[in-house]
């Protein structure tokens, strides 16, 4: 297998090297890629969409149809992981015992099925493989999370004027919550954002994007032609494009954030939603 792999790789590589002979040199301003379509995007974006960040404009307007499916790709990844891994019925060995920790003393107790916990609020449910994480890690993560989330929101909202947008911001927001999941445990996260909420929000994110497009379609123009939204957004058609881009970016942000959390929860715990890693 190794030799076959080597032969295939070398042959493919040789063909690619051969073909590269006809390519324009690196950073050549007169290459077809730089002279055919891109000047239009660079020069006309401002007057056609009123968004200074050309990448955002092309992403969410000229080629918004691609981006919509891109969001659907990330959604389907989350859904596939859930579909493949999530175990809804627990194995019998797992239902028998549950573990609780006395928060003040740190004593862990094991409760067999049919027995009840001593009546007290001082017990929290934990997983048998759970190890308490350090105070420093917990506190510093907790302090950082609001700032990370604020930055994530900024990246989404400021995508028109600076590098950023729904995907980047969504990943940052998702990372902030995953960080919490790592420093505390998975259960803490599920208490704050339930699995159902994550799954529904993920679909809602994609719905915001495609729904915006479908709204244009219902208003009598082509799919994703944001001009039609001007009467609804109470602005002129040109600004409507810019606003609609923000709306779809928010949809993307929601979808990406929740998918990241969904993927993490399913992958790290192999679908059992107990403490992973």
């Amino acid at each position: 297998m190794k030799i076959i792999g080597l032969i295939i790789s070398v042959l493919t590589g040789a063909m690619l090297v051969y073909a590269a002979a006809d390519f324009p040199a690196w950073s050549d301003p007169s290459s077809p890629a730089s002279t055919y379509l891109s000047p239009h995007f660079i020069e006309k974006t401002m007057e056609e969409t009123s968004v200074p960040n050309i990448v955002t404009a092309v992403l969410a307007d000229y080629r918004s149809f691609d981006t919509m499916f891109e969001t659907a790709v990330i959604f389907s990844a989350g859904l596939v992981c859930f579909f493949l891994l999530r175990t809804t019925r627990r194995k019998e060995s797992e239902t028998e015992t549950t573990h609780y920790r006395h928060t003040l003393t740190g004593v862990t107790i094991q409760i067999k099925e049919g027995h009840t916990l001593p009546p007290s609020d001082e017990f929290e449910r934990i997983d048998s493989l759970w190890t308490p994480s350090g105070l420093i890690i917990k506190t510093s993560c907790r302090l950082l999370v609001p700032f990370i989330q604020l930055f994530g929101l900024y990246v989404i909202a400021h995508g028109h004027y600076s590098p950023g947008g729904g995907f980047q911001g969504g990943v940052i927001l998702g990372a902030s919550i995953i960080m919490l999941a790592i420093s505390y445990d998975l259960r803490t996260i599920i208490e704050r954002i339930s699995e159902k909420m994550v799954a529904v929000l993920c679909a809602v994110g994609v719905l915001i994007f495609s729904g915006t497009g479908a709204l244009c379609l219902l208003l009598g123009v082509n799919f994703l032609d944001y001009n039609a939204l001007a009467p609804i957004l109470l602005v002129d058609p040109l600004t409507a494009r810019s606003h609609a881009i923000l709306i779809v970016e928010i949809g993307v942000g929601v979808a990406v954030m929740t998918t990241m959390i969904w993927l993490y929860c399913n992958l790290s715990s192999a679908g059992k939603y107990n403490q992973g890693l």
């Binding site: 959604f75 993920c202 809602v204 719905l207």
Partner: peptide, 17 residues
């Protein structure tokens, strides 16, 4: 042409919810 693709896409999200 739009309905062809968009209706299944939207419905997939609605089904998921």
């Amino acid at each position: 042409p739009a309905l062809l693709v968009v209706v299944p896409l939207l419905s997939a999200m609605i089904i998921s919810i």
